[in-house]
Write a protein that binds this DNA or RNA. Structure first.
Lengths: 232, 232
DNA sequence: CACTTTGTGATTGGATCCAATCTACAGTTA
DNA sequence: TAACTGTAGATTGGATCCAATCACAAAGTG
């Protein structure tokens, strides 16, 4: 009679190592712009902030280095990386290439369930837009794109694209704040979803390409403007 | 008159942290097949082997995890990852896409110096083939491909492709050993270099694509055969 | 006999300590 | 004054220690 169920494990508790949690938190703070490009990340300071020893911090910094957000130099510590504009533009080119490939492969496999998920995520994203919940933009934006690519069943490609999106996220957030591009993004995402619901690969894939590349162009223009403004 | 030169720094000394050296060595050992898929990597054992404490080992393992060669699980340690064949095939598709793009961008910029470097690397690679220096195959193979893509001036793409090559390397080595594909690779690399020297993008890019995809197909066939053999 | 429980050895995770290295500034000398 | 030198403080790198967790086997229980 003892209810020895097969362990539903629905309520997965934190089961995450300290370095992982730290890396996640620090990544979020970098993406949110709390740490700017070139800022040094001092182990001792961070350790004190989170009330842990320096060791998990070191491992977290290694993880961030692997994802390209910080650069470690021996005996000099970690600094937030900065990308020259050519490399930012390159990242958007890469996204365009890979994400279009993913979408083209996903569309034939996409189910009604998949589309429902995408719609739900998009709703969350739009909500975040309207509530100006900047911290969630990057995550939800990727979540939406990702949901469209999932049916392609391409785990490796998805992993690569996720890594690239991580890099572009912090700049996108910047751009959405600087320029009023939020409205554009909202319209484009809706249209993209509509085309996917219609299974219209002929139009959806080129539309995605334009969506990504124009976001890249706008971002670069915004960065240029800001540089010019800073110089003055 | 004091010769205060701008610091030539030609004689860069080892300046590499222990974790980095460890990661490099372990990566080599995994790629060479000394550690097979699924093998556990015990921190204490490795630390003893290299006569260092467990700490740099931990950081090295984190690096390997980031490059996808091992999987870390909390309190259970590190095991060498294994890829299902669909994902291996996906990696070759990715390589074909990205490397062809790189080559197409590189060809217009390629200089005589670049070609000389490629030729030199290819000579080393062929030497390694003939001396059956299996340990150098993967590195030199990538070195050769990389030398052709360098003029494209696409650091981010190159970094992504390098990561993917790291994953495929260990399987390629396997394939070259199992099948007699060394001769094929040699011929194909020479032809590829010849087409690049002729700046013949029209033919070089599709040739590269075939080169990569056929390598992938051969590898998958070899793996399948070995599975069949193991079952018997 | 099957199943749970408990306990032990092995292994990883985290904290603290010491050594190595870098940075900055002060003092010295030409 | 300008450049070099050396020393002190800060910061990272590595080693050792202790705690937490896991795997597996042996013993207990229905």
């Amino acid at each position: 009679m003892s209810p020895r169920l097969p362990t539903p494990k629905a309520h997965r508790i934190k089961r995450q190592s300290i370095p992982d949690s730290l890396a996640e938190s620090l990544r979020e703070r970098i993406l949110n712009g709390e740490f700017r490009e070139g800022d040094p990340l001092v182990q001792e300071t961070i350790a004190a902030e989170y009330d842990v020893s320096r060791m998990p911090v070191r491992e977290a910094l290694r993880q961030l280095e692997a994802s390209g957000l910080v650069k470690l130099t021996t005996h000099k510590g970690a600094v937030v990386t900065s990308l020259p504009s050519e490399q930012i533009s390159e990242l958007f080119d890469l996204r365009a290439t890979l994400e279009c490939d993913l979408l083209a492969r996903a569309l034939p496999n996409i189910t009604a369930d998949d589309l429902a998920t995408s719609r739900a995520v998009l709703a969350q994203l739009e909500d975040a837009y309207h509530r100006e919940d900047v911290g969630s933009w990057g995550r939800l934006n990727w979540e939406f794109h990702r949901s469209l690519y999932l049916p392609a069943d391409r785990v490796q490609t998805l992993a690569v694209v996720q890594g690239i999106n991580l890099q572009t996220d912090r700049y996108i957030r910047l751009q959405l704040l600087l320029t009023g591009a939020v409205a554009d993004a909202e319209v484009e995402h809706r249209e993209l979803l509509r085309l996917c619901e219609a299974r219209d690969a002929e139009h959806a894939v080129p539309y995605l390409k334009r969506h990504i590349l124009s976001a890249g162009r706008n971002l670069l223009a915004a960065i240029k403007d800001r540089h010019a403004a800073n110089a003055a």
